[in-house]
Amino acid sequence: MSSQPHTVLPWVVSRTSLPLLSMRCIACRSESATIGDGKFRVNANGKLLDVWLLAHCTSCDRTAKLTVHERTPVKSLSPTALDGYRTNDPALAASTLLDPLIAHRNRFTLDWKGVWNLNAPPTPLDHAWPIHIEVVFEDPIPVRPDRLIAYGLALSRNEALQRIKCEIPLRRPSNTGFNFTVMPAE
């Protein structure tokens, strides 16, 4: 264990709104859509349900249906989920949109540009001792750690890369928490 004093700072990456969907509209060939109000469409066929999350093209406002459940027995869904689909629960719409299996099934990706925020206390870069920072993600927001660190420290990416020590690859997007240490300036 090190005898040097150090400071531990928490950083939290959170989303400010729902991301846009990157998917091609069949009407106007635009590449972005939104879920708008987060409305579900539920269709019953006997004891089987189809559930869709409705998405709207940002260019032509055409509605597309994102498959959530297809020909699913009613008894296999929880009463909470059924009620959420019926009442268009915004939290359920958000968790459905962020589910990677739903994205894969419906062939869309999420555009996180401008819809996340870094909540970080001021970092004293002129401190004589190393500063340890713990990064936590509230949602699976894919951000490159080198860009996040440079943004949070208000440094260029090159300077940030020279001053930090981290055990994860910094140039690959990460959406899980990680730790790094900011070393004093030389």
Rank of each mutant, 00 (worst) to 15 (best):
E186W: 07
F178N: 02
I102Q: 06
N119A: 07
H56N: 13
T109H: 06
L48G: 07
P100E: 13
P10T: 01
R29K: 13
L161G: 12
I164K: 08
P140E: 00
A91P: 05
H6T: 14
H6P: 07
T34R: 14
N43I: 11
R29Y: 15
D111K: 09
I133F: 12
F108I: 10
T80L: 03
R29L: 14
S156R: 08
R163Q: 01
Q4E: 15
S2Y: 14
E31S: 08
L48K: 08
R71C: 03
L98D: 08
F137H: 09
A120R: 07
R144D: 04
P140L: 04
S14T: 14
T176N: 07
R163Y: 03
L118S: 14
T72W: 05
T176E: 11
A160S: 13
S59W: 00
T34N: 10
S156D: 03
V115W: 09
H6Q: 14
K47A: 12
L110G: 05
L49H: 06
R105Q: 15
L170F: 01
W112Q: 10
V68H: 12
V74Y: 04
P145K: 01
N106I: 01
N88M: 03
L125H: 05
P79L: 11
N179M: 01
G84H: 06
F178C: 07
V135P: 10
C166Y: 01
T34C: 05
P79V: 00
M1K: 00
P173C: 05
G152F: 06
P79N: 10
P19Q: 00
S2K: 14
S59E: 14
G152T: 04
P142D: 04
P90I: 00
D50V: 03
P19S: 02
H127L: 06
E159D: 03
N179C: 04
A33E: 14
T181G: 04
L153V: 07
W112D: 00
D37G: 03
L98A: 11
P10A: 12
E167T: 02
R107I: 10
L125W: 11
V42S: 04
N43Y: 12
N43D: 12
L54Q: 11
P169W: 04
S14L: 08
A120C: 00
W129V: 00
H6M: 12
G177C: 04
L20P: 11
Y151A: 08
Q162I: 04
V68R: 14
P90M: 03
I26Y: 12
I26V: 09
S17M: 08
R41T: 02
K165E: 13
P184A: 05
T109I: 03
P90V: 01
A81H: 09
V182H: 03
I26P: 14
N106H: 06
L97D: 09
L170R: 07
E186L: 11
V115L: 05
W52C: 08
P124R: 09
S174C: 15
E134Y: 04
I168K: 10
N117D: 15
F178L: 09
L82V: 02
L101Q: 15
T181N: 04
H56Q: 13
K39G: 09
W112T: 01
F108G: 07
K113E: 12
L148K: 07
I133K: 06
T34Q: 15
H69V: 02
V182L: 07
P79K: 11
W116H: 13
C60N: 08
F137N: 08
S59T: 02
I35L: 15
Q162C: 01
T109D: 10
P100K: 00
A64S: 14
R105K: 13
K75I: 10
